[in-house]
């Protein structure tokens, strides 16, 4: 695993496709600047390694929602910080790992469940991002390892009958 310290260029660095034991393969392993502008660059990299458009859309949506959370709530907009993003695929699962060095924060415990039936004028602005991550993924989990938060998302790959 590469180091987790800022570089001078502050550009995202990507490492793709390496075997990782048994049937697992690391599709993407990158260090992403904790800035909103980095999300689209990351999305381009995800689109490149995940040819399934619908799956790539779901992954990019989850990454944006969680990275935005870290930038706004975890790091309070602090500059020059980085996150690590990994995509790992096996025969049946896609696993997304997101690691930050922010104070302890569990978005899945702390985000209120949005009320989706409210009228437009009563709709609160917020809470939808985490709601969508929970809807799109089969398993979501956040942990604090003493130096940062590690979020693990898992999606079961339902292979199409024609494949």
């Amino acid at each position: 695993m590469e180091s987790y310290k800022p570089t001078q260029t502050q550009e995202a660095r990507f490492m793709k496709s390496r075997p990782c034991g048994h049937d697992k393969q690391v599709l993407l392993d990158c260090r992403v600047p904790a800035r909103l502008e980095a999300i689209e660059t990351l999305a381009d990299a995800v689109n490149e390694v995940l040819p399934d458009r619908d799956l790539a859309f779901s992954v990019n949506l989850c990454l944006e929602e969680l990275i935005t959370n870290v930038i706004v709530h975890g790091l309070k907009g602090a500059a020059d910080r980085f996150m690590q993003v990994q995509l790992i695929i096996s025969d049946d699962w896609l696993e997304i790992l997101l690691r930050d060095d922010a104070p302890r924060f569990d978005p899945f415990m702390q985000a209120p469940e949005p009320n989706l039936d409210l009228d437009v004028n009563d709709r609160p602005i917020g809470g939808l991002g985490v709601h969508m991550v929970k809807k799109l993924m089969d398993e979501v989990h956040a942990d604090y390892d003493g130096s940062g938060n590690v979020i693990v998302l898992r999606k079961h790959l339902r292979h199409k009958a024609s494949e």
Binding site: A43, F57, N60, E65, T68, G126, L128, G129, M132
Partner: peptide, 9 residues
Amino acid sequence: DYISSAGLR
């Protein structure tokens, strides 16, 4: 081709 919760907001 893409929208997130920020777009919905």
